[in-house]
Amino acid sequence: MGMLIIIDQPPYGTWAGREALDMAFALAAFDQPTSLLFTGAGVNWLRKAQDTADIEQKSLEKNLAAAPIFGIEAILADRTACQRYNLNSEAMIDGVQLTNASADLLGQYSQTAFAG
């Protein structure tokens, strides 16, 4: 079953998403099966080549790349939201599975929590 953390907030400009990522890492640390789902403006986390030097923040792209190392099971992205933000597979970081954010998907997890 496992836990699904849904990030529907854009990267940067708000801390909600980063806090959700911390929570996912903490769950993985205790070997709770945990997956991340990016929907809405959240899919913009998954765009390649984020260069944050000028906004003086850590790169969420690089932070997120640590997810498999820490034991996050899957990184999922809602297909419709990716289309809405013009995010095709070429522009997307590796290791993301496209899916449809639906009641069926949520039904596969014993617990679901949204960022923020």
Binding site: P11, Y12, N44, R47, Q50, D54, I55, N86
Partner: peptide, 24 residues
């Protein structure tokens, strides 16, 4: 990357915010 309606008026975007989001 998401909206079509923006093209109607002159539009500017901050370079540092584009880069951070991989859009530069």
């Amino acid at each position: 990357v998401a909206s079509k309606a923006l093209g109607l008026v002159q539009t500017y975007a901050l370079e540092s915010d584009l880069s951070a989001r991989g859009l530069s």
